[in-house]
Structures are given as C-alpha cells and as structure tokens.
C-alpha cells in the first residue's frame, strides 16, 4: 500500500513530462490564410512589385509555431493583390520595385490563458533600377489570443502569431499605400 502511494507521484510526473513533450511536437507553423490582411486603400501604385522575405524559419518538432519566409511572402502577396496596392506581383527579378520584409524577432510566451505576441519586422521598398529606397521602416505589431480562441495552448500560440503577422502586414502595406512613388 505504501509503495503504491510512492509510485503515484512518479507516474504523475512521467505522464506530465510526456504530455509536455507531446504538446511541443504538435506545434504547427503560422498559416498563410491566417496572416492575410485586409488593406483598405484607394491607391494603386502603377508598378509591379517583387517580394523578398527573410528572417523566418520552419517549425521544428520541438519548436513553438514559427513563420516561414515562404508563407509570409504568400500572405503579403495575397494582401497586396486583394488591396490592389500594386498593379501586379512579380516572381523573380523583373519587377519595378522590390519589397523586402525581414522578421526581426517575436516573443514566445509558454504559459497562460492568453498569449500576447509582439512581432517586429523591417520593411523596405526599393526601386530595382535606381536601387533607391522609397520606404524604410521598422514595424511592430501585437496580437493576443485568449482561451476563448482555443483551449489548446499550441493553437492559441499559433493564432496569436498569425494575428501579429496579419496586423504587421496591414500596417506595412498601409504605409506603402500612402507614399508617393514617382515613375
């Protein structure tokens, strides 16, 4: 009887550790559709743009959700097309302007009913012919995902990250929509 009581705490710890391990492994990357922003603007720059994202990373088995460069670029591309901010988005080097977006950092909360993630990125828009930068700005955005959004911690984390990315894209593209770009 006494030994059973001794075993219980150890088994409880073992189950807890395995559960934590399992939850880490369940993390999924931030999805493109969750990061696409609705940008309301009447401005359409009469140029083509290419998108270059960097600083992101794939979500590893032991990582929390991360933003991949490819998914972030797709989300920016869809947001530009939906908001008609440029006449076209070009893949490759044949564009009039190059939009560079670098993911600088974001915090990774581990515990709590609500996860608040702050994402900092660096945005630049460069004329591909003259190499003149017409816009350069660091943009910081924050989004909170609460227990009501998801009871599963790893999903809550991903939703917070996607929300921060979506707001970041919205701010960045609204900045771009407001600048006057010369022919």
């Amino acid at each position: 009887m006494q030994s059973k009581q001794l075993i219980k705490p150890f088994l409880a710890w073992a189950i807890l550790l395995v559960t934590i391990q399992g939850l880490y492994g369940c993390a999924s990357p931030a999805e493109t559709k969750g990061m696409v922003a609705q940008v309301n603007t009447s401005t359409t720059h009469p140029f083509s743009v290419g998108i270059r994202t960097q600083g992101g990373s794939e979500t590893g088995a032991m990582d929390p959700s991360m933003i991949s460069d490819t998914d972030f670029a797709k989300a920016i591309e869809e947001s530009i097309i939906n908001g008609r901010i440029f006449t076209s988005v070009v893949h490759g080097k044949a564009s009039d302007y190059e939009l560079g977006v670098t993911i600088l950092n974001f915090n990774k909360p581990m515990f709590g009913g609500s996860f608040t993630i702050t994402l900092e990125t660096a945005w630049s828009l460069t004329n591909t012919t003259t190499r003149e930068a017409v816009m350069r700005k660091n943009i910081t955005s924050t989004h909170t995902a609460s227990f009501g959004d998801s009871v599963v911690a790893v999903t809550r984390f991903r939703l917070a990250l996607e929300g921060a990315a979506r707001k970041n894209i919205k701010q960045g593209l609204e900045e771009i929509a407001q600048i006057a770009i010369k022919q």
């Binding site: 150890f10 088994l11 710890w13 073992a14 550790l17 395995v18 934590i20 391990q21 032991m62």
Partner: peptide, 20 residues
Amino acid sequence: QLARNITVATLLAIISLLSG
C-alpha cells in the same frame, strides 16, 4: 516494481530535458 517505476520516470525526465 517501485525501483523500476522510479527508473522509468527518471529516464523520461532526462529525455525530456536533454531533447533541447
């Protein structure tokens, strides 16, 4: 049996800590 369970729990704890 108790010793075996303790060993398993300890092993899991070490694996969990070493994985990162």
